[in-house]
Amino acid sequence: MAVIKIAIYQKNIHKRFSQEEIIKIQQSKAQFLLLPEGYPHFFQSSSPSDGAKHEKEYQDHLLEISEKFTGVILGGSHYRNNDNGKLVAALPIVQSLVLVDFYEKKTLNPNIDLSVQNGSTESIFIMGGLRFGLLLGEDFQNKIIWEEFKKEGIEIIFHLDTTKPNKTYEEDLSDYETLAKEKNIHLIRVCGTTEGIPARSLYASPSGINWKVGKVEEDKDVFKTLSVNVMRSYLL
């Protein structure tokens, strides 16, 4: 068994990290930092294609965090034209001032991801001594991805999300708790705050809900460092 330290930052997706917040992340000494879907989004873009024009500015801010934080940064997400010229919603993966890779969203939101195409990257990564699965937003509902996780024996899954306001706080907790128990996985979700939409970051494990933001924190920035015990996924 190994203990992995994972920092999650429930963050307003329109606000940059201050130097004080970056120092807080650095002092956590975590191996991973998870940022919510849609972070950073500093420009009020009129469309995903317009948002893709700001790709470099988004990535530069992640690299600014990486100057102090030596672990793996996952997220949040932004629109970009990939190497094949497809407009996709992409989750950048950064470590040690290097943009290592992208995870591309496979299950699009028809109301938001306008003219965006389904991604085709792998959903399983090995970084920081850990083999893990990634889900971005609506990928949570993608049965094909979940079947792949089961086939490959993935023990820990990171869900970078935007909370869906059609569910109650209690329903969200119940869904994640049930799934983590049924699939015998560690499921860590990080959400961002924006425009009155609640943020419900949480950590569900086979034993139940290990941590969650309270109802009074749904509209607040919350930083939390989790210690996760993994059995099968840690690579020496």
Rank of each mutant, 00 (worst) to 15 (best):
L135P: 07
V213Y: 13
K29Q: 14
A180T: 01
I65N: 07
E67S: 06
S49R: 12
L97R: 15
L97F: 03
V190H: 07
S227Y: 10
K24W: 10
W211L: 04
P36N: 11
N12V: 04
K56A: 06
N229Q: 12
L34R: 11
S123T: 14
S77P: 05
V230P: 08
K183L: 08
G119Q: 07
T194V: 12
F32D: 02
I185E: 01
I156A: 04
L187H: 03
F132P: 06
L235I: 15
N111P: 00
E155I: 06
D101C: 03
G71W: 13
H78V: 02
G128W: 12
V228G: 06
G85M: 09
F132Q: 10
S174C: 00
T225K: 15
T225E: 14
V98R: 15
H78N: 15
T162N: 07
R232Y: 13
L202A: 04
N82D: 15
N109L: 03
L160N: 04
V116D: 02
P48N: 08
K164D: 14
E218S: 11
I23S: 10
I197A: 06
K164N: 15
L99C: 06
K53H: 11
T70K: 14
L135T: 12
H186R: 03
K215Y: 11
K11F: 04
S46I: 07
G153Y: 09
S46Q: 14
Q27K: 15
E138V: 01
I145W: 01
L62S: 05
K167D: 00
R232V: 03
Y39K: 08
F17T: 02
S77Y: 10
T70Q: 13
L97V: 02
E155D: 09
F158I: 01
M1H: 12
W146Q: 04
G71I: 10
M127A: 05
H186W: 07
S205V: 02
K11E: 02
E20N: 09
F149Y: 15
P92W: 02
F17I: 03
V94S: 05
I13W: 03
F32M: 08
H61C: 00
L99M: 08
V116F: 11
S49C: 05
V213G: 03
Q95F: 02
E177Q: 12
S46D: 09
E217V: 03
N111Y: 15
Y39H: 04
K86I: 00
I4A: 03
S115K: 14
D83M: 09
L235K: 13
N81M: 07
V230T: 12
S28C: 08
S205F: 08
K105D: 04
R232N: 14
L160F: 05
D60G: 00
E55P: 00
L99D: 01
E218V: 13
D221P: 08
K224L: 02
E138T: 07
Y176R: 06
T225D: 05
